[in-house]
Simulated scan of single mutants.
Amino acid sequence: MAAQATFKSIRSVVPLLDRVLVQRFKPDTKTASGIFLPTSATNTPLPEATVIAVGPGAPNKNGQVVPTTVKPGDRVLLPGWGGNSIKVGEEEFFLFKDAEILAKIQE
């Protein structure tokens, strides 16, 4: 199970190295026809998220810093599980390594 931390403001969280702070999209709690879905049906995290903040990058084997491949505001595809959970009030955010992000979603 991933560690969880609680903060008063998401602005106080600054990712280090190649870490990426994201907020997953929330699953719909009702269908298009207006039927409310039970919590158990919406418990699986959605694979899409919005990038909130990124670290400066991590050094490669030569010591050169390789920047992260995403930037704040990007929509990304995440693995089904993983990351470190961060709670800010009722909002939940996750920290992933840049290499764990599966894809950037182009609009």
Rank of each mutant, 00 (worst) to 15 (best):
V22A: 05
L17M: 14
K104Q: 10
G57C: 06
P79C: 10
F36D: 10
V70Q: 09
I101P: 00
D18A: 02
A3E: 14
T31F: 05
L37W: 09
A3T: 09
G55W: 01
G55E: 00
S85A: 13
S12M: 15
E90N: 10
T6G: 15
T50E: 06
A99Q: 13
P38L: 08
Q4W: 10
G80K: 15
P38H: 06
L21I: 00
M1P: 15
N60V: 15
P79D: 11
G89Q: 10
V22K: 08
N62A: 06
G89D: 12
D98V: 03
I86F: 02
K8C: 13
L102I: 06
A49G: 08
T42Q: 02
R11G: 14
G89F: 05
R75Q: 10
S12I: 04
V22G: 04
G83D: 03
Q106G: 11
V66T: 14
E92L: 09
G73F: 03
K71F: 10
R19D: 07
A41Y: 06
R19H: 08
V66K: 13
K8G: 12
A49D: 04
G82Y: 01
N60M: 13
S9R: 15
L37D: 09
T69K: 14
A5R: 14
K61T: 13
A103M: 06
L37G: 09
S33E: 06
V51S: 06
A41R: 11
F36L: 08
A58N: 15
F7E: 09
T50Q: 13
L37R: 14
N60K: 09
S12R: 07
A3Y: 10
G73W: 01
A5T: 07
R11I: 05
Q64S: 10
P79I: 05
P38G: 12
A103S: 15
K61G: 11
L37T: 07
T69R: 14
F96A: 03
L16Y: 07
S85G: 08
P79N: 13
R75W: 04
